[in-house]
């Protein structure tokens, strides 16, 4: 057992292109392949539904069936729907490590009143809120896939909206991370974690730079699989000169602060 936790994984089909390996069985094989013990999983098709929470029941059941803590469900909450507080309460009851809300996919203003209300509620119940900057490279998206990318300003606004909320931002690149981190107070920045999946390794060495300038404690292991090869996030770490303790912090240890 590696102890490695992938905080950024999905189950289910992607509507914009053929993606292999989206079933629970296939994801389990992928986890085995790259030695990941646990994946935080979200129901991917649900992100494109009018009520994304309709995918959450399947997600909980799939995680339960997988057993051994292989999958931890990260259900989607839509704060524009009437029952969103019940969905959040169900996530707490189910022991979800976090909840997800990608506002632009849900047609919400990223830092509007609904998202701020969700941030406050997440802070109150102690659940981190997961947001993705993007799911795919903007240059390759389907011509009809016009959903915008999350702006750094939106993350800054959300972290300022409540002094208890903790955010996990996935698929961010170096510029995004720096803009939010250095555009936040130290207290605000301490409540934001970043997954490494979109941050470049050598020769540009963006990840190495960020670990030095922002701090290793702010980063967690995420892959974006199955939309992306999980091998990439492992390779990023293999290309760094990290002590075993530093590597373990990114691969799992930093989650203690995120989820406690």
């Amino acid at each position: 057992m590696s102890g490695r936790v992938d905080v950024n994984a999905f189950l289910g089909a992607y509507p914009w292109r053929k993606v292999p390996g989206t079933s629970p069985e296939a994801l389990t094989k992928a986890l085995d392949r790259v030695t990941i013990d646990t994946a935080w999983v979200t129901h991917l098709p649900g992100l494109f539904w009018r009520d994304p929470t309709e995918g959450n029941a399947w997600l909980y059941e799939t995680a339960r069936k997988a057993g051994s803590g292989r999958f931890k469900p990260v259900p989607t909450v839509h704060p524009g729907l009437a029952h969103w507080k019940e969905v959040l309460a169900a996530a707490v009851d189910a022991g979800a490590p976090a909840v997800r809300c990608d506002p632009l996919y849900l047609g919400l203003e990223p830092s509007g009143s609904e998202m701020r209300a969700l941030a406050t509620a997440c802070g109150a119940v102690g659940l981190p809120l997961v947001l993705a900057v993007r799911l795919e490279d903007g240059r390759q998206r389907h011509p009809n896939d016009r959903i915008g990318e999350l702006a750094a300003a939106s993350v800054r606004a959300l972290i300022r909206s409540d002094d208890q909320v903790r955010l996990l931002v996935t698929h961010a690149d170096r510029g995004f991370v720096e803009e939010v981190h250095f555009g936040s107070t130290p207290d605000e920045a301490r409540r934001i974690w970043w997954d490494i999946c979109w941050i470049w390794g050598p020769p540009e060495d963006h990840l190495e730079t960020l670990l030095e300038t922002i701090g290793i404690e702010r980063f967690v292991f995420g892959t974006g699989q199955p939309l992306r090869l999980p091998e990439n996030s492992v390779a990023k770490l293999d290309l760094l000169d990290l002590s075993p303790g530093q590597r373990a912090a990114i691969e799992s240890g930093n989650l203690n602060a995120l989820t406690s």
């Binding site: 390794g201 091998e231 990439n232 293999d238 290309l239």
Partner: peptide, 10 residues
Amino acid sequence: DLTMDTGWAK
């Protein structure tokens, strides 16, 4: 090209 980590992953 510009990202050796992605090359290694592939």
